[in-house]
Nucleic acid binder design. Structure first.
Length: 232
DNA sequence: CTTAATTATTGACCCGGCAT
DNA sequence: ATGCCGGGTCAATAATTAAG
């Protein structure tokens, strides 16, 4: 159901007005979402089923530019998995998902794949909710973890794996994805370095409509900062 | 009685913000 | 600069039940 965003409290909790009543909602996406979650914004929430829930609702998406932007980041790995299985991700056709949340190096990577030829690939999935005009930017907040994931992927490539970063872009107006130099220059550099090491960045759109979420078509990833962005 | 399948429990992790 | 907090999910492990 649709509601009106009131405010966020901490990372996980938000207050949302639905049918004239203010209710609490869980926000899974821990990013800033500052330009999305503004007072009065239209949001999509669902009942929060299960025992010992501390919020009444669960926030699924928020409306921006007349399109739903998925903020339920718990879905990203599942969406990626399904997209890979169905052959939507062209670069990964013929790969099957072997394991999820794979321990590697100092942390975890989202997916371990294996191609028909026996090639193993590690994939880190990243959800992208920020865009300026037609350019999707990642991340929307500085992310040490993101940098570490990229370093681990680069290491995986040295160890003989294929390495992928799969950005799932939740903005319908986006036509390309770039690292967000202004918010996290370190991530941008790490992405370039990972790319040089052989890690392949991919970006695909994720579309929510009529109660369904799907990974759809790819958009190009560009490693240089957009022209309008000033680099210090 | 052994093995498989289902269910319950545990622990790690997500990551920005606030307190120390 | 470091550590903990928060609500929830998922993989892995443990415990229970069902099937052979």
């Amino acid at each position: 159901m649709e509601g009106r965003f009131i405010r966020r409290e901490g990372r996980f909790r938000a207050y949302v007005e639905v049918n004239g009543k203010v209710k609490t909602a869980h926000v899974h996406d821990p990013g800033r979402l500052t330009e999305l979650l503004v007072r009065g914004a239209t949001v999509l929430v669902r009942p929060h089923i299960g025992s010992s829930r501390k919020t009444e609702l669960y926030m699924v998406a928020t409306l921006a530019n007349n399109c739903w932007v998925l903020v339920d980041s718990a879905l990203h790995v599942k969406l990626a998995e399904e997209a890979i299985r169905r052959g939507v991700v062209r670069e990964l056709r013929g790969y099957e998902v072997v394991r999820k949340e794979v321990k590697y190096g100092d942390g975890r990577l989202d997916l371990l794949l294996k191609s028909a030829e026996g090639v193993e690939a590690l994939v880190e999935v990243k959800g992208c909710t920020l865009s300026v005009g037609e350019i999707a930017l990642f991340p929307d907040a500085p992310t040490l973890r993101g940098k570490r994931h990229l370093k681990e992927l680069a290491k995986a490539v040295r160890d003989g794996y294929e390495g992928y970063v799969l950005f799932l872009v939740a903005r319908c107006e986006a036509r390309e994805l770039r690292p967000n130099y202004e918010v996290d220059p370190g991530f941008a550099e790490a992405l370039k370095e990972a790319f040089r090491a052989g890690v392949k960045p991919l970006a695909y759109k994720v579309v929510l409509k009529e109660g369904e979420v799907n990974v759809t078509e790819p958009i190009p990833v560009k490693l240089e900062p957009p022209r309008f962005q000033s680099s210090p």
